[in-house]
């Protein structure tokens, strides 16, 4: 089965006043269908940049990214199969959860009769059914994150891209988010998530790619990691810094 995500020599160089900044450097990896794949690294390692390159929000300087075999920059139709939850998501504050999901459902041209059912089901799944008419401007961070996950799933995507999904959540909220993500794999979906919270990644991911300063240090299967991921990560990064 072809890989859901294929990155080949993916490079992104930003032009900045102080000189060019290489955010991602020659990144090559593949994500298989049905797995939860984690991209980890310290802040500024290129995780979010990689995610945005997959969504066509950024354009590669070199190399290519392919999602379901298509170029996400030129083929907007591939986004029909994607769901995306950005870090610390923001939505129109004057809308409530139902209105937000309705808006995003319209972007996918989901038929009206199906739209309401999906919205109700998703709000139930993320635990926002009894607060569906609270304006987002009055919602807590955790509530907005849940609504964000619901909007990422509104189109029943095959691939879900999550940027720091548990960041800023309390332990209960993080646990709920983790359970939601694990349930996505049970539904046969592929999940690609970025996180610097290694303890969370350890509990969710099948495989993990470790980034440092835009470079891929290693791709490993969680089942092959002896000890903690954090120790392994620190060891790798320190070795990379020595070289």
């Amino acid at each position: 089965m072809p890989a859901v995500i294929e990155l080949e020599g993916l490079t992104k160089i930003y032009k900045a006043f102080g000189g060019p900044v290489t955010a991602v450097n020659g990144l090559s990896l593949a994500v298989e269908q049905g797995e939860i794949f984690g991209l980890v690294g310290p802040n500024g390692s290129g995780k979010t940049t990689t995610l945005k390159l997959l969504l066509g929000l950024l354009y590669p300087t070199k190399g290519q990214a392919r999602v379901f075999g298509k170029d996400p920059v030129t083929d907007t139709a591939v986004r029909q199969r994607l769901g995306f939850l950005p870090e610390g998501p923001y939505f129109y504050e004057h809308l409530d959860a139902v209105e937000v999901l309705s808006f995003y459902a319209q972007l996918f041209r989901i038929p009206k009769n199906e739209k309401r059912q999906r919205i109700d089901r998703l709000l139930e799944q993320v635990g926002m059914a009894d607060r569906q008419h609270v304006r987002l401007g009055q919602c807590s961070r955790g509530m907005v994150q849940r609504i964000g996950l619901a909007q990422a799933l509104i189109n029943d995507p095959d691939l879900v891209l999550l940027d720091e999904p548990t960041s800023g959540l309390d332990p209960l909220g993080a646990r709920d988010m983790r359970n939601h993500i694990l349930s996505l794999r049970e539904q046969g979906k592929t999940v690609f998530l970025c996180s610097h919270l290694l303890s969370e990644v350890e509990r969710m991911c099948d495989r993990v790619a470790i980034l440092h300063q835009g470079h891929l240090l290693e791709v490993l299967r969680m089942s092959e990691v002896t000890g903690s991921l954090e120790d392994h990560f620190v060891e790798l990064v320190e070795e990379a810094q020595r070289h």
Partner: peptide
Amino acid sequence: ERHTIFTILSKPVG
């Protein structure tokens, strides 16, 4: 500024 553009342009919206 509101970051709402990320969630919109990540959808099949040209």
